[in-house]
Design a protein around this nucleic acid. Structure first.
Lengths: 234, 234
DNA sequence: TCAATCATTAAACAAATGTTTAAAACTATT
DNA sequence: AATAGTTTTAAACATTTGTTTAATGATTGA
């Protein structure tokens, strides 16, 4: 409540997308440098553990620019989340459309594989490898009020789409059951997305199980997901 | 490096278990009050987001006692982790022994159910419901050097035991595959353990899927885990 | 070219942080 | 009851935090 007014004022003054798109080159560059640096640092260390000064230094800009361009540290984080979530969602939707065009009616195997592609497909290795999963973990660990709204806006559409597809492929299951299992899949993949690998995995497998080895991970897990999804409720 | 010596000295002076067990009633009470308060706050808000003063206030003791009894905020967190991990592990090991005595040779269904019991069994609702899962998420989100050691010490034995059982039940699969899938199960259950529920789950299921409803969660997921685990690698 | 707007900077702000200190209170042993 | 040892307390410590401010630089449009 103490900084509420000034923060909003700052954010409005800065972000103001209302009057045009590519309006100032330096500004957009600074913003993207901050977002990139923040994404890396937040995903590696969490939200509270990273200071505005660290982010600014990593981006090579002045610390005050965080507040100037985004209003506050928290709003910068939210912007990072929005961008990476949107990328993740766009990846999946694009793939789904492509595969639908290519194969016509999709089988369960296809739908599951497409949904997990951003996290499991070795050919899908963007430069932001794993960053999204870790950001997700950070949001969950350090509860943020704004996040539920952001997640709802970002993920509801893609999840509804995939639930529709899955429901069509699994007529013996209720949407209720399928929803539970879809989120179980997400939990698994987020877990393998954290860095370093889930505690104990490296040790207990004597280095054999490595989530960085997407090829192996996909091979060992894809049927686990598919057959799990297909299992009756009993 | 600046506080290393004094911290260790403080911790040694305080924890010194060497000269006896139940030596001072107040001390043990203060310690347990701090641990309980810290577990609640850390699991709800993360590590960095919680201050020593908050913990002390919640425990009803002086802030300086955190450093006196545990050496530092971080060492208090580590102690919390150790205790809750030990509880979690003990639960599973006890159950396994019980069921082995009761049923003799265990089937895949039994082993999976026992492993997941602390997170999925409605009868297993301790007062620390969900706290362990959230603490786990916090450790993952806010990387801590000490955690890998703690996790290794706490979980290796129980995981080896259950991997042995699973390997016996699944002779058509390699231990490598089983290890991947065991951790996939863990990831799912940790995801459902966070509070509030995984982002979007409540919304997209219109309130139908609620991880607090252990009975429903178990019913919808148990076969997903079992049949997923059993699936061939292909 | 002048004015206005936007972007950047260095400095300062108040508040909160983990931790330390030195004295006090308490407990147990002699 | 006196002593020694442990536990608790309030206060202070030095940092660090996110954010604000006021001045400067840069860019754009008239």
């Amino acid at each position: 409540m103490m900084t509420e007014d000034t923060r909003k004022a700052g954010a409005r003054r800065a972000s103001g997308r209302s009057n045009g798109e590519g309006r100032k080159a330096d500004s957009a560059l600074t913003r993207s440098k901050l977002i990139e640096a923040a994404a890396k640092l937040f995903s590696d260390n969490g939200f509270q553990a990273v200071s505005v000064r660290e982010i600014a230094q990593a981006a090579g800009v002045n610390p005050a620019l965080v507040n100037y361009h985004f209003g506050s540290k928290q709003q910068l984080f939210e912007e990072v989340i929005r961008i990476y979530a949107a990328d993740n969602v766009a990846d999946r939707m694009t793939r789904l459309a492509q595969e639908r065009r290519r194969l016509g009616r999709l089988e369960l195997e296809d739908v599951v594989e497409i949904y997990l592609a951003p996290m499991i497909d070795p050919q899908f290795d963007t430069d932001s490898d794993g960053v999204f999963s870790r950001l997700h973990a950070v949001m969950i660990a350090e509860r943020m009020e704004a996040f539920d709204q952001i997640a709802a806006r970002a993920f509801t559409a893609v999840n509804v789409t995939f639930l529709d597809e899955l429901e069509r492929c699994l007529p013996h299951l209720t949407r209720h059951t399928i929803t539970w299992r879809l989120f179980a899949m997400v939990g698994s993949m987020l877990y393998f997305g954290v860095r370093p690998a889930p505690p104990g995995l490296h040790l207990i497998s004597k280095g054999g199980c490595d989530p960085m080895n997407r090829e192996d991970m996909r091979k060992q897990l894809i049927n686990y997901f598919i057959e799990g999804m297909r299992a009756p409720v009993r």
